[in-house]
Each structure stands twice: as C-alpha cells, then as structure tokens.
Design a protein around this nucleic acid. Structure first.
Length: 620
RNA sequence: GCGCCCGUAGCUCAACGGAUAGAGUACUUGGCUUCGAACCAAGGGGUUGUAGGUUCGAGUCCUGCCGGGCGCACCA
C-alpha cells in the first residue's frame, strides 16, 4: 500500500506540475524506487499515520516541496488532493457487485485453513481504496482506507493462506552464514542471539523472495582446541572420559581451566606449547582425542539446533579453509597491501583507515583472516550467489571491513555484508567469554526456562514451545545495536512477550475448533461486508501491514521489528476478541464473517511466529 | 591516542527528519455464569544525559562537553 500511495502521489505531482503552473522542479523519487539514488533530493515518503485520527497513511510531501514550488504546504497539499479524487471509493456505487468479490469459500476442513477465493482477486475497482484523502495542518496529506479495501484484505489472506506476504521471486541469491560455533567451547547464551537473528533472517529473506542458502562455519581448528586438549590431559587424565555425563560442558570447563592455568603459570605455558607442537605434527593419541572430543561438540551443537528448530544447508569448516588459505598465500602476496612485517604476513590497510590485519603469525600459523578470504570466494564461486551475508557480533565490525577491503583489492568486488549485533553480557558482570568461563550455557538456560513454564502451568503440553518461544522473543526484541544485559529472571518471564503472542494464536485455534464442532461450515459463503466494528478494522489494518514488514526487514535486516509487530497484532486480536463475540448462533452470517477474520489472523500470526522461529502451539 | 556504538517513563526497550515521544513490566482501579482471565478496559508516570547549531519541524542530523560500552599486530 505504501508503494501504491507513493506511485499515485508521483503521478499527481507530475500532473500538478503541468496543470497548476508550478515552477519547474525535479519530481522526487519514491522510496520504493530502490536504494537512495545519488540525487539527494527529497523523497516521496509515505508512512503509517501516527494516530488513527490522522487516517491510516500519511505523506509529508507537500512540506518538503514547499520551498521548491514556492507555495505554502497547505496549498500544495490541497492541489495534490484534488488530483487524487479518482482514488476515493464513492460509497453507494456498484455495491452489490463488489460485495460478491469478497465472498470466499470455506472448506470443510476449517482447521487446515484451506480456502479458495470464489472469484479471484478484485482488481478493477481496487484503486479506489480510500474512503477519503485529507489535508491536515501543517501540510500533511492523510489517507483513510475504505471499508471495502479493508474487508477485502481478509479475503486476500484467506485466498493466499500462508503465502500471504510472500514477495515475488527472481530476486538475488544469497548465502547467510551464522552461528559459527567453536568446537571444544561451550555453546552459551551469547551464541543463542546469533542463532536467533541468523535463522530469522534466513526465513524472512526467503519469504521476501530471495533464494537463500543457510550456512554454518564450524571453528574446528586453532589454539583453543590445543588448549582444551592440554587441559584435559593435564587435569583429567585419570578420568574415564567416555563416562562423563555432560561432555560438552566438560570440554568447556577444561578449556576455561586451561586458559586460566596457562596465563598464570609460565611452566604450564611451555608444557602447552610442547603439546601443541606434538598435536600439530600428528601425534596419534592427541589426534584421536581431538577427533573424539570434536564429535562431542558437534553432537551437542546438533542437539541444540534441533531443539531450536534451525538447520543449515551447508557447513563450512575452518580446518578446510585453513588449508585453502595457505594455498592461496602466493596469490595474496601479489596484492599490494599484503606484505611481510615483523616476521608475520599482514594486510596493511592504513591508507583506507582500516589499520593492519595479521593474516599469518610469525610462527607460520594461519589466523582467522586467512581462512575467511578463501571462504568468501568459495561462497560466490560454488554457490552462484549475488550476495553474501555473515551474521557476527558487532565487535568484529572492523575485522570484516578489513576482509571485504582485502577481497576488493584482490579484484573480488562483490556484495558482502556483515550483519552485526551487540553482544550479550551478564547483568552486573563483565562480558561473557568462553575463555573466562563466566558463561551461561545455552543448554542450561533452555532447560531452565522450560522448567519454569512447567512450574507455572502444570500440565501444559507445550512447555517446550512456550519456554523456547519466550527465550527467542526476549532476545529478538532488542534492536541489533542494543546490548543485552542478560537477566535470567527477565528472560524467564512469561508475561507480555512470546507467550502473549502464542496465546493469541492458541485462542484463534480454539475458536476455530469450537466453530467446527458446533457448526457445519461446508461450502458456506460469508459476507465480509459485515465486518464493520472498530476493533475489526483495527485488527485488519494490522494484518494488512504484514507484507510491507516483510519487504522492509528483508531490506534492512532489522529483525527486531517482527517481535514488535507480533505483539501489536496479538494485542489487536485480544482486543477484538474482548469486544466482539465471534460465535453467535443467533447471527450466523456475522459469525461466519468473523470466523474468516479469526482464521486470517491465525494465518498471519502463525507466519509471523514461524519467521522468527517461535512455534505456535494450538493449545497452551 | 584514533575509530565505532549507546544514553528515552521506576525497570527493560521501541520510534524512514514529521503531528500529542510509544509498548511491555511495575503501580492504581474496574471486568470471568458467555468463544481460553497466559486476557481486556481505564489511570498516573518524560525538560529524550547536557550546551549550542542546522530548518517550516530534531529523540533522530552537525559540533562541544558529561557518562557507559566496544574495537584498534600475531584471539575469533
């Protein structure tokens, strides 16, 4: 709708320029014309009205043009509005004809939401979708959607079902890399934020028409592994490793133990270095310990992913990229900025204000950057993508700028983006770090929150869905530049967040189930014109915003807008529910129309939750 | 030292340069004989850290200051 309004405003401006003897000026581009062009001129911007008294959409175009046109904003707005008359739905015209368009067939299986549109999407009169278009001080143009348009939204959702909000395909192909856990370290709540954001982004981009490959990049090599192995052989050599209960936790503890010991005692440091050499030269005992423990980590990751409902199309391995990076080294050294310095190989990016990045240590071992370069190239070559997105903590912002710059200097100038987000810290404590061992393991938190749900609502069968839903919601509602000071009591709270939305969804299911029991809705039509209650319109308006939200977030990657939207939508539904009795045996026609609205709410609510990975149980 | 981010209701957070700065939570009050009260309705609560600037218009952009966080050569 925003796009439509932008378009008709643009048309109106063109007309006005010609007919109202405005001075010559450049017609501004509309925001939907794509990313802001080089011309810095004013854009045609349409936004949701701030409050219902200002209609549904509004534009400030008249105010931005006031100077250029040399007239007052109010005057300009008035002239524009005059030209928009053809978009106003004149009531009492062809009413009976149009009401048929909103008739929808309801399938016998109401719960599966199988509905088909009777007469196809109404197109002819659809441009008359405003009840009125008004000018308001100091120069706003306010658009009020017509009842007919809004009622048709319900029909549209029922016709498209879960596909409602899908954007057209044929867009870019993109790889989204996220999670990137290190083996031999514990998967903690900081990692969860990454998984939630990455998974949501994948879902949303897919819904937005992109061809998305989800990728994970496992840190299965590096100093941290040797440290963990040293820790095990130093402090736990007597234990029977196979009998350890929580193997992932054991590895994490051994790692933190080792880091601490090595930093405090130079003898240990030497011991560790000896072990590291032994390990790297292929010592059988150590290598087999490594393989065994690596598998422990991977098993744990898989369990967590499964529980969280995320999966990856492809896995990349740091150990593999390391080899490829080393093979690439001669090529890299041809690039101007890459040179030897103090015995190490570095990329000197000072002239771009990006400092220096060490690629290879002076002992010849590879650092992260040397691995990320071949990985980036591989993604484009082997997966035929147009864009590469990596979801990583914002602290690596400079690092990724450096990597992207190096690639560009190599002549590899592609669309690569780092989606950053602030880190998670513990309330009243320093930032979480596996090295320091001051972490909350993801596993612990997930179990804890599920327990909490079971305590609070004994007998619920959806404790897991509700608990994990609350957790995902809690982490996703923060914008990416907001730090999360993790407070387990806050995360575990069930009020006013994930469960609130899930509850709204469960209510829709409950009503639809009841309706199915008590009525026979087979092959019944319903007349959506009957939806005229203020709360109904309010709910429909919210439903109508869903496709625009998809488009927006697919562009901006601001995933946190989904939890906020979900809250708002659930709020509108609860409010409608309270004010409007749905099942009324004395008024079958209205009941049917409202059931349509409930069903369309269920569809959109379900889709919204699905996109952020929150399950939508039918009963709670 | 250089660079990036943040400072909004008691608390946790929203808000393309737009209208009276909004939600949740907490607090106060009212609402279950009716489709699920894990809910709804109403109320109080703000000099958007601070001082200037830009303009029709600033929480948002620019500058200074105060406060907090992060990153800057061998971690990832």
């Amino acid at each position: 709708m925003k796009e439509i309004i932008e378009k008709i405003l643009k048309e109106a401006l063109l007309k006005a320029k010609n007919s109202e003897n405005w001075p010559d000026f450049e017609i501004p581009a509309s925001a939907s014309d794509g990313p802001a062009s080089a011309t810095d001129g004013p854009e045609i911007v349409v936004d949701y009205a701030k409050s219902e008294q200002f209609g549904d959409y509004s534009s400030n175009i008249a105010m931005t043009l006031a100077k250029k046109v040399g007239k007052s904003p109010m005057e300009i707005a008035g002239q524009i509005v005059k030209l928009l008359d053809c978009y106003i739905d004149k009531k009492n015209t062809c009413h009976s004809e149009r009401s048929e368009e909103s008739l929808v067939n309801m399938d016998s299986n109401i719960n599966s939401g199988i509905l088909t549109s009777h007469s196809g999407a109404p197109q002819d009169d659809s441009q008359r979708c405003f009840e009125k278009i008004e000018v308001a001080q100091p120069g706003y143009i306010n658009f009020y959607l017509s009842n007919k348009y809004l009622q048709n939204v319900v029909g549209k959702i029922l016709a498209e079902k879960e596909l409602f909000g899908n954007l057209s395909k044929n867009k870019e192909k993109v790889i989204v890399e996220y999670s990137q856990p290190n083996t031999h370290k514990e998967f903690h709540i900081g990692h969860l934020r990454n998984v939630f954001i990455g998974n949501s982004l994948v879902n949303i981009l897919r819904k937005g028409g992109y061809g998305v490959t989800s990728a994970n990049y496992i840190g299965d090599t590096g100093t941290h592994i040797a440290k963990c192995l040293w820790g095990i052989s130093k402090f736990h050599s007597e234990e029977n490793l196979d009998q350890i209960n929580n193997k992932a936790e054991f590895l994490g503890k051994s790692y933190a133990e080792a880091v601490k010991a090595i930093s405090e005692n130079p003898d240990f440091e030497n011991e560790f270095k000896l072990l590291q050499k032994k390990f790297e030269s292929g010592d059988e005992v150590l290598v087999s310990l490594w393989e065994k423990t690596k598998q422990w980590s991977l098993d744990e990751f898989e369990k967590i992913y499964e529980e969280l409902g995320v999966n990856f199309d492809v896995y990349f391995w740091e150990s593999v990229e390391e080899l490829e990076g080393k093979a690439l080294l001669p090529e890299l050294l041809k690039v101007d900025c890459i040179q030897e310095s103090q015995g190490a190989i570095v990329a000197n990016l000072e002239e771009y204000g990006l400092g220096v990045l060490v690629l290879v240590r002076k002992d010849g071992s590879a650092l992260y950057g040397l691995k990320d370069i071949p990985l980036a190239i591989k993604k484009f070559k082997e997966y035929d993508i147009d864009k590469s997105i990596v979801v990583v903590d914002i602290r690596q912002g400079l690092y990724f700028k450096q990597i992207f710059k190096i690639l560009q200097l190599m002549g590899f100038d592609k669309d690569m983006q780092h989606v950053g987000y602030e880190f998670v810290s513990l309330k009243g404590s320093e930032s979480m770090s596996s090295r320091k061992g001051n972490i909350i393991p993801a596993r612990f938190l997930m179990d804890e929150i599920i327990k909490k749900v079971e305590d609070k609502f004994p007998g619920t069968k959806a404790a897991k869905e509700i608990g994990l839903g609350a957790l995902k919601f809690y982490m996703l509602k923060y914008s990416s530049q907001s730090k999360i000071e993790f407070d387990i009591n806050e995360a575990v709270k069930l009020e006013g967040s994930g469960p609130y939305v899930q509850y709204a969804h469960a209510r829709t299911c409950s009503i639809l189930g009841k309706a199915k029991e008590n009525f026979n809705f087979q092959l019944l039509n319903s007349n959506l014109d009957l939806l005229i209650h203020e709360k109904e319109f309010s709910l429909i308006k919210e439903l109508d915003k869903f496709p625009e939200l998809i488009a927006e977030v697919a562009n901006t990657h601001e995933v946190h807008k989904f939890p906020h939207y979900a809250m708002k939508l659930a709020d509108k539904f609860h409010s409608f529910y309270d004010a409007c009795r749905v099942i009324d045996e004395g008024n079958i026609e209205l009941t049917k129309a409202r059931l349509m609205l409930v069903l369309s709410t269920r569809i959109v609510l379900g889709e919204t939750l699905r996109l952020i990975g929150v399950s939508a149980p039918e009963k709670m």
